[in-house]
Design a protein around this nucleic acid. Structure first.
Length: 509
RNA sequence: GCCGCGUUGGUCAAUCGGUUAAGACGCAUCCCUUUCACGGAUGAAUGAGGGGUUCGAUUCCCCUACGCGGUACCA
């Protein structure tokens, strides 16, 4: 009996969506779709002190842009709601209490200051960060160290308290990780993690287990930073819902900063000049804007493709994958164990490849928006499409299209006269005068004819075509860039071409 | 400190005991192109160190080093 595959991405809405987060979404999504399963988005907002306005909405937008649409989410509830943990608050207490009754957890009344005192008192050179564990728990104020009466009195008086898991002393917790194989921990090394906070909210540890159970999650994929707390989760599964019902785990490798070591952070992006977030993020408190891949001019297909290959490959030499291909080819056991350094140059390459190989119609509207933003009016969609096709090879970012092709739609703002002037002479001037005359007489305005005419006139005037080709380019586009000159002439049309040549000729007088 | 997880060119990486150790990005040189790209060709560059196991280790085991992650009433 095979259960339907159900996976979840469970972000806490505290800010921009990080590269690594998107990759976690992606791997979840690919796995789910490959197995005809469901991909669930659950919002982990149990820490009320970290609420950030707009962060949740932002996550939806990012997933939308990436094309990784959840089957169930707060916006699109399925049968397992609510999908926001803050709205599930009432659910968790029951399980925490159950654990206490089973003798697997206990009440702890220690105040934050008392915890701090414990940490400073027990701190030694060998043990710089003491834990709340079997070594100290009997010295703290909890239902283990206190008498039954005392505990009851405290509870009845509504004394603030948390519920902590009682870690067994000499057990080995072992589980199978889809990427790392068998992983094991000694329970005596793990601390008595808080399960239920004083405000009645669960911590991540309780919530993830309860919700994964209630939402019938079959596979749980998350970042490697969670690996060390996994024994707590495994034990909770054992106590509460049965180890046989536990989802299969996979702890994904981290995405590292390009220079040095360590997790890639937003700061690294700022420092090294590349985005880390999927989309622009504006901090509602400081109004600070952090650039995203989308706004930089990335195609979502390229972004996804790049992320998929950061830690995974299918064993072949293929590097360009569509989302559909990724769905069919992805496999968790080919995911690397070690972290991967992020390389923006390679990310750019992916985008460039996608721009080149995609049909221009697929990003036409996105580029159109960019033109709008720059007040460049497109009134001929057909011409627009041709232009995009003509320049796409030289665009790494979508935003490059503006620079590369605005001259097709408006007369260049400035003509790089300085690049023509030094070698300019009357002979060349005459050539262009003649060229204008000849072009004016042309009926058919086609690439090959235009080039032929140009070369014939050059020959008659004993001018090397190369000597007048660059000037012509500059007259038409304003500078030393753009596609083939006669492609430009052909697309620009007779009237505009002649107008621009005349204009520059005047400037050269 | 302790626990866990890692380690193939600058970077992403293939290899599942036997190869001249792929490929890609980037870099360099050249060709194409009388702009810039695209495209093509060539080149430099890799198994952290030490022990085992084996006829043979990049591959399996151990140790060391190094890195990362965790060690919160944050996720």
């Amino acid at each position: 009996m095979n259960k339907k595959v159900r996976v979840r991405f469970a972000p806490s809405p505290t800010g921009g969506l990080h590269l690594g987060g998107v990759r976690t979404v992606l791997y979840n999504y690919l796995f789910a779709k490959q197995h005809n399963g469901d991909f669930i988005l659950r919002i982990e907002d149990t820490d009320q002190t970290r609420y950030v306005e707009g962060a949740e909405e932002y996550i939806y937008q990012c997933l939308d842009w990436c094309g990784l649409i959840p089957d169930e989410s707060p916006q699109k509830p399925g049968a397992f709601g609510p999908y926001r943990q803050s709205e599930r608050k009432s659910i968790y207490r029951k399980y925490a209490e159950q654990l206490v009754k089973q003798g697997k957890a206990y009440y702890a009344f220690d105040m934050p200051e008392e915890l701090e005192t414990m940490r400073t008192n027990y701190k030694t050179a060998e043990n710089p960060s003491p834990q709340y564990d079997h070594k100290v728990r009997m010295k703290m104020r909890n239902s283990l160290s206190l008498t039954l009466e005392e505990t009851e009195r405290l509870l009845e008086a509504s004394t603030p308290h948390v519920i902590r898991i009682l870690m067994p002393e000499n057990e080995t917790v072992q589980f199978h990780d889809m990427i790392r194989g068998e992983v094991s921990f000694q329970t005596s090394q793990v601390d008595d993690k808080v399960l239920l906070k004083a405000d009645g909210m669960p911590t991540y540890h309780l919530a993830v287990v309860v919700d994964d159970y209630l939402m019938q999650i079959t596979h749980a994929f998350r970042g490697e930073e969670w690996l060390s707390s996994s024994p707590v989760h495994v034990l909770l599964w054992k106590y509460l819902f049965g180890i046989e019902n536990m989802p299969q785990w996979a702890h994904l490798p981290l995405i590292l900063k390009p220079d040095g070591n360590g997790k890639l952070s937003k700061r690294d992006g700022d420092r090294l000049g590349f985005p880390v977030f999927a989309m622009n993020w504006v901090d509602p408190k400081t109004n600070e804007l952090t650039k995203g891949f989308r706004e930089l001019g990335f195609l979502p297909e390229a972004f996804i493709n790049m992320l998929a290959l950061l830690g995974w490959n299918d064993g072949s030499e293929q590097e360009i994958f569509s989302l559909q291909e990724l769905i069919s080819k992805f496999s968790m056991d080919r995911v690397h164990k070690g972290g991967a350094k992020f390389n923006f140059e390679k990310a750019k390459w992916f985008n460039h490849e996608w721009i080149k190989q995609s049909a221009v119609s697929s990003y036409q509207s996105a580029v159109k928006e960019l033109f709008d933003e720059n007040n460049i009016v497109i009134n001929d969609e057909n011409k627009f499409l041709k232009v995009l096709e003509l320049v796409k090879d030289r665009c790494t970012f979508l935003t490059d299209f503006v620079q590369q092709s605005s001259f097709f739609f408006q007369t260049p703002g400035a003509i790089d006269i300085a690049a023509i002037q030094p070698k300019w002479n009357e002979k060349k001037n005459l050539f262009f005068v003649e060229l204008i005359r000849a072009y004016e007489l042309m009926n058919l305005w086609q690439h090959d004819d235009l080039e032929k005419e140009f070369k014939e006139i050059a020959a008659v005037n004993e001018i090397k075509p190369g000597d007048v080709l660059l000037p012509l380019r500059i007259m038409l586009v304003g500078g030393k860039f753009g596609p083939g000159v006669f492609d430009i002439v052909a697309l620009l049309g007779k009237e505009e071409t002649i107008k621009r040549i005349k204009h520059t000729l005047q400037l050269l007088q």
